[in-house]
Amino acid sequence: MKVFIYPTNSLILSDLVERFGHEPLALMQEIGKKVRAQGLDSPPLNITPEDPKIGLKYAAVEVPSGVRGRMSLFGPLIQSAEAAIIIRDPVIPFGCMGCARTNELVNFLIRAKKIPLLELDYPSTEDEAKEFVYKISEFLKSLTEKKNEQH
């Protein structure tokens, strides 16, 4: 299944999703496309003033351009998501999207989509961390079962 992750650039989450046989929907792949695409309009991210306009699908012009520019990358991922994992209040090294307003909108759009969703607090102790990984793996396994049932 296509699993949207939040924070969207979390390598740990992306890796976990992949290990359980699902496709992570992560920011890295979208940025990668921008960087690898022919023509370097605005290096290093290669985001041009056209991108915040694509973001108008998700937020009106009164919303800051940085939010809309980010949404032009995250929006299509959210649209194609079949399941999602949201980590609440993660530390910056776990994954960081820079802008709190974008985070609020991304989390809302995922919740509003009514797809299988796991929401967890970021762990602060070793025991919590073990529980954290366990819950994510159980969730990903349940997605596999759901997928198999569908087939």
Partner: peptide, 11 residues
Amino acid sequence: SCGAEYSGIQK
């Protein structure tokens, strides 16, 4: 800065 690269104006 915050948001300059995502606004496409870094260039």
